[in-house]
Amino acid sequence: VYGDLNLNDYLQGNTAPVFFGSAVNNFGVKEMLDTFIRIAPTPRPRHTTVRDVKPEEDKFSGFIFKIHANLDPKHRDRIAFLRVCSGKFSRNTYYEHVRLDKDVRFSNPYSFMARQKEVIEDAYPGDVVGLFDTGNFKIGDTLTEGEKFYFTGIPSFSPEIFREVINKDPLKTKQLEKGLMQLTDEGVAQLFTQFGGNKKIIGCVGDLQFEVIQYRLLQEYGASVQMNSLPFFKACWITSKDPKKLDDFVKYKQANIAEDKDGHLVYLAQSEWFLNTERTNNPDIEFHFTSEIHK
């Protein structure tokens, strides 16, 4: 039915191989893994805010691309997943956390295969390492051997579905705040706070994500919430070279202004027409549909 896989098209991202099998019945799993090892690209240079980092460099560097809270609910652990980009990552070695400007050390770095995990001594470019996190990491954070830069190309995308989070149990406010912060740190949803207020707004790209968040808030944090739909079409990060113009825009559009978790201003548009109108009427305001994660 299909032609042979063109490896060059695959490596350029134009096509993708599809495997058929069953993990439960252990059918096709070995073939898929063997093929992955055979055709997967080798580690490639990555762009940073300073220079390109090559995998064959001697000094270690890597970035956090995923965070998962409560991987083991019994221990309330939080794992940050690090992709090694250059050099060699070693256990019990101090590395610089660039955003926090401090040294960090990991005594129990893990590698994962399905539900199994094991402590590793070292890792190399292309490897993914699981690091225990007590809240020090965000997606996009960079670790190095002392050089200060951030890996680029790790965007935060604009959500298109928005719901207000209503706390159904005021006695669980602290648990709700913690749950919202940790679950949105994972990157599948974004948390906004109404500008000048306390209204919590979650933005996602699909309805199912709201159900997952609501379930996990209750099961993992004991926080029962109600999620009310909001009439917003798109979230855009806003900036301007003229601070006064930006302040005026925020003042007049306060009902549509929110802040993300990092304090960046966001404009919530009710429709595409409203968004296009504001962009036309405010040429000094820049509307961004992604926010680069390296701050």
Results as ranks from 00 to 15, higher is better:
Ser156Gly: 01
Glu272Met: 00
Thr142Trp: 12
Arg216Asn: 07
Phe289Asn: 13
Ser111Cys: 02
Thr48Ile: 11
Lys245Gln: 14
Pro243Gln: 14
Val29Arg: 01
Asn92His: 10
Glu160Ala: 12
Leu5Tyr: 09
Val53Tyr: 02
Glu164Asn: 14
Ile238Asp: 04
Leu217Tyr: 01
Pro231Leu: 06
Gln254Ser: 04
Lys138Ile: 09
Val84Gly: 05
Asp101Phe: 01
His294Ser: 12
Gly146Ser: 08
Phe27His: 13
Thr277Gly: 02
Lys200Gln: 04
Ala235Trp: 00
Ile39Pro: 07
Trp237Arg: 02
Pro125Arg: 03
Lys138Gly: 08
Asp34Phe: 05
Ile166Ala: 13
Arg91Gly: 03
Asn228Met: 11
Phe233Pro: 01
Glu31Asp: 01
Ile213Met: 13
Phe151Ser: 00
His47Glu: 12
Glu259Leu: 00
Asp52Tyr: 08
Phe36Glu: 10
Cys204Thr: 14
Gln12Ala: 15
Asp185Trp: 03
Pro55Lys: 06
Gln116Lys: 15
Gly21Thr: 06
Phe27Asn: 13
Thr35Met: 07
Asn256Glu: 15
Tyr215Lys: 12
Leu180Asn: 00
Lys66Asn: 09
Lys234Gln: 11
Gln214Cys: 05
His68Gln: 15
Val266Tyr: 00
Arg38Asn: 14
Gly140Pro: 06
Lys102Tyr: 05
Ile139Tyr: 06
